[in-house]
């Protein structure tokens, strides 16, 4: 097995272009489990741990997204999301709090969840609920494209990345209303979701966001429920009055 350790993002993209089957690894909380169980033997591992910008986040204004947006580096660990972004991304922070154990939360990241695209990934329902204008930055030597979160999940453990693409960051609008996340597992901590649910109200756009995990081949929205609830809130004039 090849072990590639690029020092810069450009080197990483070049390495991925050259070895499209290389499996990116950062926290290793998912990849290493697969390797240890011998379920998966990639021809090469692409270690992203030397690329510091992946573990940073910034806030800004981006085209195609309304209001303030958090550009969350792919490898920012859940522990930091919960600690540093609970106000801006409350749904994701709540979801991050349910990931594995404290040790796992120190290593695991949203980029890993997206790369693995497991229907049980805890971040997915929160990302879906956060709005239709959540974008995954997919980068390659060919350039960067933005994949809307609704288009990202395409099957069980499959996403819409091209073989030469790496996840650089996720752009998530800062919450403009309440967000919640909950999941059901059969233990009170460190448990895989039997079912997870992300929920967000977006008063600015008068929309409702939902995300359901672990209940279908991909994470998915409850579209009819979103529409129903948004309409109900509008009919009763609750968007404007905030309840």
């Amino acid at each position: 097995m090849e072990f590639l350790r690029p020092a810069t993002w450009d080197e990483a993209l070049a390495a991925k272009a050259e070895n499209p089957s290389a499996l990116p690894i950062s926290g290793g909380t998912d990849v290493m489990v697969e390797l240890n169980f011998d379920r998966h033997r990639p021809a090469a591992l692409l270690d992203l741990n030397r690329i510091s910008e992946l573990t940073e986040w910034e806030s800004g204004v981006y085209e195609g997204q309304e209001g303030e947006v958090i550009r969350l580096g792919a490898a920012v660990p859940y522990a930091r999301i919960t600690r540093e972004l609970a106000r801006q991304l409350p749904g994701l922070a709540l979801a991050g709090n349910t990931v594995g154990s404290p040790q796992i939360r120190n290593r695991g990241s949203v980029g890993g969840n997206l790369g693995g695209a497991s229907p049980a990934g805890d971040a997915h329902p929160a990302l879906l609920a956060a709005g239709r204008d959540v974008f995954v930055e997919a980068a390659s030597v060919r350039g960067t494209r933005l994949i809307a979160i609704d288009d990202f999940y395409v099957g069980v453990k499959r996403n819409s990345l091209e073989p030469d693409e790496l996840i650089r960051a996720v752009r998530i609008p800062v919450a403009d209303g309440p967000q919640q996340f909950s999941k059901i597992g059969t233990r009170n901590a460190m448990v895989i979701a039997v079912c997870a649910f992300g929920f967000a109200l977006h008063p600015r756009s008068g929309t409702v966001g939902t995300g359901i995990g672990s209940a279908a081949p991909t994470p998915r929205r409850a579209v009819a429920a979103e529409e129903f609830l948004a309409d109900e809130l509008a009919e009763r004039n609750l968007w404007a009055t905030a309840g």
């Binding site: 990931v99 497991s118 229907p119 059969t186 895989i192 039997v194 079912c195 209940a215």
Partner: peptide, 22 residues
């Protein structure tokens, strides 16, 4: 069609090796 999907409650019969999301 999706034998490895984690829709089961806990460690149950019928459960295939689980895609570990952690």
């Amino acid at each position: 069609t999706v034998p490895c999907h984690p829709y089961l409650m806990g460690p149950q019969a019928g459960r295939e090796p689980h895609p570990n999301p952690l």
